[in-house]
Write a protein that binds this DNA or RNA. Sequence first.
DNA 1: ACTACGGTTGAATCCTGAA
DNA 2: GTTCAGGATTCAACCGTAG
Lengths: 214, 214
Amino acid sequence: MINLMLGDCLERMKEIRDGSVDMILTDPPYGMSFQSNHRKTKHSKIKGDSNLYWLDDWCSELYRVSADNTAHYVFCSFHHVDKFKQALERLFKIKNVLIWEKNNTSMGDLKGDFAPKYEMIIFIHKGRRLINGKRDPNILKFSKTKNELHPTQKPVDLLQYLIGKFSDSGQLIFDPFMGSGTTGVAAKNLNRKFIGIEMDKGYFEIAKNRIESA
Amino acid sequence: MINLMLGDCLERMKEIRDGSVDMILTDPPYGMSFQSNHRKTKHSKIKGDSNLYWLDDWCSELYRVSADNTAHYVFCSFHHVDKFKQALERLFKIKNVLIWEKNNTSMGDLKGDFAPKYEMIIFIHKGRRLINGKRDPNILKFSKTKNELHPTQKPVDLLQYLIGKFSDSGQLIFDPFMGSGTTGVAAKNLNRKFIGIEMDKGYFEIAKNRIESA
DNA sequence: ACTACGGTTGAATCCTGAA
DNA sequence: GTTCAGGATTCAACCGTAG
């Protein structure tokens, strides 16, 4: 079962039944500008809300739709980790903050700072979910995707790893900020069901095509 | 110049002159025991939440004693990164969150979680301080010290690396939570001046001996 | 005119991995 | 080896407006 919705996730999530989702795996917009004058490959502009006013309502809906005894992942940069952690913490149990170590660094302040080489992944439980297989360290090394369709596209193998560790075959994975649909591809590859929501029509079509042909 | 003080850093810091410190490098107590009690209540009141009530006053004093255009490091676990980031952010500029990747993992939840393999280091500026040498990634691999004198003892080579990157020979390093004195040893090895404060008399003596014989 | 402030624009510059 | 491209960017200069 694959269910893709075009629209604002705060609205469309209302259509999802209480306790029906076995894993949320998503990469919310951080509220940064993606338009760089130096990037060769330009992506369409993504709406940046740096005030993150929607966070609390969003977390409440996530809690409502998720089943008991499930584990979930929310990608996050260190710039906003405090706000995301506190919003999630009101309802979920913060289990860990995983570090996705990339194979490259990004730009940032070249003279007064260290070079960004990772993204954070807030790992939460509703109730208690046991790990599948062995317990791995909380630093995960995966190479970045080449020729990205979306500026923050995640590697499929990273998402498949995360899905495999804390969900079972046939369970339902949910991504409220679908982007180019990598979470859906990973879910389908592992025989999970999937619900994805995306507001941008261009990315929605890309996601639909990618997941169909996966 | 090495100046070691026995006492509560919130009190003893008052003796340090405005703008006299070139780098703060410290590992504050996290108050983990309070945290675990608090977890049982889901809709937690922030008031009386943990023993981090001293954070805001502490940050104000750090800001007062530090010179303009200086860089500083505060160690932190992911459990409390939100509170430390927000307290520091009121006055300092958050530049980065560094990841100290250890060579081993610690215990934690063996069945429902990933294994902790890192500590966070909040990296802040007062004004703007340029890097010494090249710009390195924000994931730092250093092996843990063996036969520790203190439960959260840091490797000397890690602290020397951090000191070397953002301070100069002859400048003053300050550690308000000195513990077993590793920051002082690193500072002395690199010909920096040092002020350290420690409340516990046992650790104070250990630190004094270690720094003297460094 | 003279700052002061806010928003926008464009230049800078470095490590890593892939070719 | 050697070259080359690119990266959830930051900083500073530059206007336009307001006081």
